[in-house]
């Protein structure tokens, strides 16, 4: 064996192992013998130091760098945090347009127009009733005050416009009840 021994071979020889060829080379090669002696001295020194008390400045773990063992776990935790953070950002971004859509001007203008159109419908009916007969004006006013659709609006169209609020009060029937009665008993209303 002409080539010098590797560190691992020297270490195995120190541990009482190694082939006979390696042992022979160690006896013949001065460089390898010197390296072997250095290995022995280093191991003795290290063992001796570790048997002694540790120097005070070496034992603080406050600023100890992260060991290799914890590195994968740390990377996994950091990646998980980044994923959660990014997921929350994406979720917020997708939720925000919906809110914006509900907050746009079109919606609010539609909501503004809706009651006015309802009122205009009632007013149109009231005008129609007013033009057809004086007694119907009271009915229309009552209908506007009650703010609910009623069959009474169609009374004049059906030739039953003579039934006024006064008559309903004397007969003890409320206009609403009259509505129901009109639907239930059409023959009773023909007086």
């Amino acid at each position: 064996m002409n080539r010098c021994l590797k560190d691992k071979a020297l270490f195995l020889l120190h541990d009482g192992e190694g082939t006979s060829a390696q042992q022979t080379h160690l006896k013949e090669c001065e460089a390898c013998a010197a390296r072997y002696q250095q290995l022995r001295r280093d191991l003795e020194t290290i063992s001796q130091v570790l048997r002694e008390e540790p120097p005070p400045e070496t034992v603080s773990h406050r600023f100890r760098p992260l060991s290799v063992r914890w590195l994968p776990a740390t990377i996994a935790v950091v990646l998980a945090l980044i994923l959660v953070w990014e997921g929350m950002r994406i979720w917020n971004r997708s939720a925000r347009p919906l809110f914006r859509e509900t907050d746009n001007g079109e919606t609010w203008s539609l909501l503004d127009e809706l009651p006015s159109s309802l009122f205009s419908l009632n007013e149109a009916l009231a005008v129609e009733l007013w033009t057809e007969g004086a007694g119907s004006y009271d009915l229309a006013a009552t209908a506007l005050e009650s703010d609910r659709p009623c069959e009474w609006y169609d009374l004049s169209a059906r030739g039953e416009g003579e039934f006024s609020i006064e008559e309903s009060e004397t007969s003890g029937v409320t206009p609403l009840r009259s509505c129901v009665e009109l639907e239930a008993k059409p023959s009773d209303t023909k007086r």
Partner: peptide, 22 residues
Amino acid sequence: WRGASEEYREANFPISSRTPEQ
């Protein structure tokens, strides 16, 4: 992770005999 630097300063280990190299 907690600070422990003072612990060893307070510790009183017996100093064993050292080799000349040590």
